[in-house]
Design a protein around this nucleic acid. Sequence first.
DNA 1: TTGACATACTTACGCTGTAAGCCACAATGT
DNA 2: ACATTGTGGCTTACAGCGTAAGTATGTCAA
Lengths: 233, 233
Amino acid sequence: MSSKKSPTRAVRRGKPARRAPLSRERVLRAAVELADAEGLAALSMRRLAQALGVEAMSLYNHVAGKDDVLDGMVDLVVGEIEAPAVGGDWKAAIRRRAVSAHEVLLRHRWAPLRVVSTLNIGPAMRRYVDATIGCLTAAGFSYALADRAWNAIDSHIYGFTLQQLNFPLAPGEYASAAQQFLHLIPPEQYPHMHAMSRLVIDGKHDGLQDFTFGLDLLLDGLERLLERTKAAV
Amino acid sequence: MSSKKSPTRAVRRGKPARRAPLSRERVLRAAVELADAEGLAALSMRRLAQALGVEAMSLYNHVAGKDDVLDGMVDLVVGEIEAPAVGGDWKAAIRRRAVSAHEVLLRHRWAPLRVVSTLNIGPAMRRYVDATIGCLTAAGFSYALADRAWNAIDSHIYGFTLQQLNFPLAPGEYASAAQQFLHLIPPEQYPHMHAMSRLVIDGKHDGLQDFTFGLDLLLDGLERLLERTKAAV
DNA sequence: TTGACATACTTACGCTGTAAGCCACAATGT
DNA sequence: ACATTGTGGCTTACAGCGTAAGTATGTCAA
């Protein structure tokens, strides 16, 4: 069995060219790629190490453990979100930030669940939060109101995206899927849900959700609040 | 070793009084209790069986597997939410529904993550959705608009609650916690976040989030949309 | 009484995260 | 030039997970 153990070492001695060394950065990027491609469930320390051409325990020289990997992945993803500019049109800036966050989270389908279930204080997250607060206060919001506003916007981002990701149908399949599941919604028990399903089946309602619908409701409401506080002064 | 196997059977033969039989209902209720008390992470099939005085595999006579347990738990929790009345003041009804959902989800801290990550079509969820659609359409919303409205409200419920649960501090500790973590937010790099933290430390901003802030922004916006569509007719 | 059936228990498999120890190599101090 | 030390990767091992498969027990109908 010692002959089974040797080869890798023999090879390494013969080839002094070593493999690219690991680093926290490389580990995290590989983790994001793996999760993007195969889902969070497929991300185990062994699979991740395999993708890097390394054994599982080697990762522990660069990350503290799986939780650390997941936290690092979240911060990497948050770094992709467009931070709002401070000064200028606050409403447009915050809107762009929200739309950007939505897009990024859709790109990394595993991310929203982690973002909302980790107390994340990585550098990308801090930069992102700082720019948001700055944008709002520069526009005239008090810190207290900016805090509430930011929280409401983010609630919409996370809540909407999670619901959207959870919904497993491609837009085109929606009508036929509604047809298929209609028997679960008998009209006697669920008259309104049944009626809406019929509209979807008949092509009279696409059933598609629009991220900006709720977003604009919030932004318009915030704008009115801001004008009111300005008028009061 | 056969003597090790016998006692339970001997006891059972001696005591013809049998333990309460399992049922899907009993299993699910025990699962909710366990998750409420010790968190979702502590809920394994073995622990759940133990809580019911039974072996793990016995549960599989009543539930299809762990996923089925989790889905059933979600539907049980959704059943606790107050469904809105159809007809009458839609705004008050939808508001009560949202506040009720928020309270229920805070009672079962493990639930929001599961609600947004399971395609759940259990009976309680259907009843809940049906009443919501009915309430909105009875108020004059078109089905398409009711669909968007309902989605926006639920996005707020899930997003807000998840953020709130994720935030690990009790209200009283907030100021002192901000003090403790202030060094992570140097004013040169994060001026606005730093400024807000200072306000919290100095007691000038409580930092508490209000569920109804974003909710009322949405409801007021929806009301305006409704009036506009009515005026157009 | 006997057979069928439902329920519960036992065993076993492949997976997980990670603690502990080992070993080869590179850099450093002498 | 040589010994020393530290670093990063490897191997092994452990406890726990969900659950497939097989077995034993208790209840009820014929």
